[in-house]
Design a protein around this nucleic acid. Structure first.
Lengths: 117, 117
DNA sequence: TCAATGTATCGACAGTTATCGATGAATGCA
DNA sequence: TGCATTCATCGATAACTGTCGATACATTGA
């Protein structure tokens, strides 16, 4: 997860028609990077958090409003939010005592495009 | 993973514009189902296997030809292939002594669409 | 029928992960 | 300054997961 790849690279090559995943044999390094990205989505609590943040006004929600809907403790929610942030799926901004979590739809689109276009 | 949802549902509702994940607060059950699907993709070895199968002629590869490229033992490869099959990402067909694994691109497209359209 | 081969299953083990309570740090308010 | 609140970190624990060797099963060919 180093260089931010473009969201929708203009396909100049005709072979870039389907999935990057399906276009060529995946190397071990690329596979690890990709797997790490999907790992962030591979947990029901994180998917719920992501969904709650996405549907909140402006795609932004306070961390404190997320504990009750997912039914987990504050440390657990904090842990999952950090994982989502590390994966680039949300951003966390500290406003006073609160932490505002904002969805990053471009990142979601990026992962989507890895599965096919 | 019960009812096979259509690959690209015709969006009659204007609100079905982006991601199912981002369209509404995800329930715990839906979240678990979705997470299970992404879990199958959240491992580098499985991604490599998927890639190898996809680029093989006809999108089909013999299980025996996959152990060497991923550098894992036969039981481990068998284990991962079962997970991919359970997730609907590949099908396994026993031909004599061999097991032919075939990619299911529709399933991949399904997961892609869950991230956005 | 027997040996060889491809695959699945079993048992074990190490590493990872989700979870929580307790605690500490940072901020805002009275 | 002191207190309440919000969040992150720590430590512990239970559950899950990836991995392999050993072994059992199934099929083919001699």
């Amino acid at each position: 997860m180093t260089a931010p790849t473009p969201i929708r690279p203009t396909a100049t090559d005709a072979e870039v028609c389907c999935s990057r995943l399906l276009a060529e044999p995946l190397g071990a390094d690329d596979a690890s990077e990709l797997a790490a990205a999907f790992k962030a989505l591979a947990d029901p609590v994180r998917l719920q958090l992501l969904s709650l943040i996405a549907v909140a006004p402006g795609g932004t929600a306070c961390s404190c409003d997320l504990e009750e809907p997912v039914g987990r403790s504050q440390p657990t929610v904090s842990h999952h939010l950090s994982i989502l942030a590390d994966a680039g799926l949300i951003t966390k901004e500290k406003i006073g005592r609160w932490v505002n979590c904002t969805i990053v739809p471009e990142r979601l689109a990026q992962l989507r495009d890895l599965l096919g276009t």
